[in-house]
């Protein structure tokens, strides 16, 4: 452990420590905050701290995406939901909904931690053929990603636009309000299916 710290420069270490404190503090705030809005804002702090750690690791693109997508879009969505559901409503968040939930969570968390530690010590996960590349040679990783998007993955990148069209059309379909119920709602409701006796229809509409 001491050797590891020795290889890290002082500014890096300082940045890491500050970001780590914010990160853990934010995470605790999410779990322990009584007010849902405060919890969501703590989540913002956590995600921002993660972004800082990404920058420190020279993963600038990831950091930008982290802020834009998670901090920008997702937490704002959380806040919207909290506001829409009613901020005044006191959720009994500190009372277990399910019995023993807390202990299961602790156990699972410990399991994940053990797994991470196990994976961190060995290199037995894959066979040969390491797929990691230099992050910043010959280009910065942002430039490399840009190149990949406009060369190797050009078509997949373009096809995501079809998904956006789907999203728009789907939103229109699902959000449309129907004024009139089914014409035969009232006649067929509760009618045992297959009783071929009475079928009424409004004809001539």
């Amino acid at each position: 452990m001491g050797g590891l710290v020795a290889t890290v420069s002082l500014p890096d270490l300082a940045t890491f420590l500050v970001a780590a404190v914010i990160l853990v503090g934010g995470a605790l705030g999410v779990v322990l905050g009584r007010n849902p809005v405060h919890a969501a804002l703590s989540l913002v702090a956590t995600l921002l701290a993660v972004a800082v750690l990404f920058v420190e690791e020279n993963a600038q693109f990831l950091a930008a995406v982290q802020i834009i997508v998670y901090t920008g879009a997702i937490v704002v969505l959380f806040l919207f939901v909290i506001m829409l559901l009613g901020i005044d409503r006191r959720e009994r968040a500190l009372v277990d909904q399910f019995r023993g939930q807390r202990f299961v969570a602790l156990g699972l968390g410990a399991l994940v931690l053990a797994e991470v530690l196990l994976l961190g010590t060995g290199h037995w996960t894959t066979g040969a053929h390491a797929t990691t590349g230099a992050l910043n040679r010959p280009l910065s990783n942002v430039a490399q990603l840009g190149r990949a998007i406009f060369t190797t993955y050009l078509l997949p990148f373009e096809i995501t636009s079809a998904l956006l069209v789907v999203a728009v059309v789907a939103a229109v379909v699902l959000a449309r309000r129907f004024d009139a119920p089914h014409d035969d709602e009232r006649t067929l409701e509760g009618d045992p299916a297959g009783d071929a006796g009475d079928e009424s229809e409004v004809a001539g509409r």
Binding site: A162, L163, V166, V169, A170, V173
Partner: peptide
């Protein structure tokens, strides 16, 4: 390309999810 297959799969599936719920009155 596997990533392309994944995106195509989503382009195929997501409209079908919506179409399955197209008759929103039922």
């Amino acid at each position: 390309d596997l990533i392309f297959i994944f995106l195509a799969l989503e382009v195929l599936s997501i409209p079908l999810y919506v179409m399955a719920g197209f008759d929103r009155r039922r």
